[in-house]
Amino acid sequence: MEFIWAIVIGVLYAAGLYMIMRRSIVKIILGLSFLGYAANLLIFVVARLTRGNPPLVPNGAEAPIPPYADPLPQALILTAIVIGFGVQAFTIVLFRRAYRSCGADDIDELRTTEH
């Protein structure tokens, strides 16, 4: 079943790459979001998909009942999601600032330090 998600990951990467190569700065922000989703899904899928058995230890047991989902990539992704939020917010505010200071909505206008 993973092959479907491999395709989804490819499409998300393609969308992200396409969007960050645009000139409109809003599109670049959206592109970064796409890349974030794609990367998180990539890690998640490559660790194999498991249906309905999260890595939780049942009450009283010593270990989760196999075949449980791999907990390590999940921990990595969890922090990546939150950090991704921080980065996204930072980018949004940075571009907002650039737009307000220089009036630039085109990334090509930000090539030099003069405006």
């Binding site: 999260p54 939780l56 969890l78 922090t79 939150v82 939020f85």
Partner: peptide
């Protein structure tokens, strides 16, 4: 610590 949740989600 025992069920889904934690500091990250709670904080969000």
């Amino acid at each position: 610590h025992n069920e889904p949740g934690g500091g990250f989600v709670g904080g969000l």
